[in-house]
Design a protein around this nucleic acid. Sequence first.
DNA 1: TAATGATCCATTGACGCCCATGAAATTCCA
DNA 2: TGGAATTTCATGGGCGTCAATGGATCATTA
Lengths: 161, 161
Amino acid sequence: MDRFVSTFTNKIDAKGRVSIPAPFRAVLERDGYAGGIYCYPSLDAPALDAGGERLAQKIDGLLAGLPDYSDERDELSVALYGDVQVLAIDGDGRIVLPQPLRAHAGLQSEVTFVGLGDKFQMWAPERFDERRRVAREKVQEHRKLLGRQPPRSEGGDGEGS
Amino acid sequence: MDRFVSTFTNKIDAKGRVSIPAPFRAVLERDGYAGGIYCYPSLDAPALDAGGERLAQKIDGLLAGLPDYSDERDELSVALYGDVQVLAIDGDGRIVLPQPLRAHAGLQSEVTFVGLGDKFQMWAPERFDERRRVAREKVQEHRKLLGRQPPRSEGGDGEGS
DNA sequence: TAATGATCCATTGACGCCCATGAAATTCCA
DNA sequence: TGGAATTTCATGGGCGTCAATGGATCATTA
């Protein structure tokens, strides 16, 4: 298991702490996180993106292609690095979400963790429900357009890559 | 961790002192700073750029690429070296920002420290919010242009960061 | 001696770390 | 196969440490 899959919903306690779902923690440990996980506001959704070293390298990769001191790089740097928070994981597998991040995702008392392969997202449960509902509708439209295709069995235990 | 990541906002006290965020200090100590950090007005933003030895070497590298006695080099030299200040860090991890630097960034009572990899910037919080907003919009445009990023297969555990 | 700046000290509030509790799933045994 | 014990997790709380901040003392210099 080296990918984030499934969704889980956990509570935020009085101190702003929230448990990372155990399966996600297992992935993070495999991925390696030096000091914490990387977390930043999703660019196109009211949610937070998070992951371990692999995600960090992806960000670096984006910037690596741009020349130093170009305007483009500066802006990307600000948007990416500037928004990234490194969140420490405590001994019980919990993180603390800083206020600005919570605000972006509209997080109140609960967080829905959504696995997305090599990263995961954190949503306010209500907002995620809404998004999921829309996603389902789109899938249905697709199926109509494509003429019904037999559902591909998800079953994979075989990890790809 | 040898890179500046995340953002922090600290206060400027009555004497003009401001604490460098502890994580940044840790990076600086690893990077090495002989007597202080290098700080100068950002060329294209109402902010201050700062860093340790690595940043100084990068500036040297930039200038080295330009022919001696070229107009470009002269201008860059003046623009960069001319305004560079070496700021001492006191026993409590604080620096004092000289008036000209504060003026350039419009710093009043608070400073937002923004990690940008091998340097960091200091912004007036309000101005940084604005800049971040713009930067995020640009990134969204980028993503549209690139089409959605193909899910990069796990590859590349390459370098540690 | 007055003013300026640097070093040191104190407070407070946040955060990291530890342990306790309870629920749910899993295993083990009858 | 059913029930009980055990383990895993999520969650809540207490406490110690460290960082940020404000203030005071000391040195330096004009």
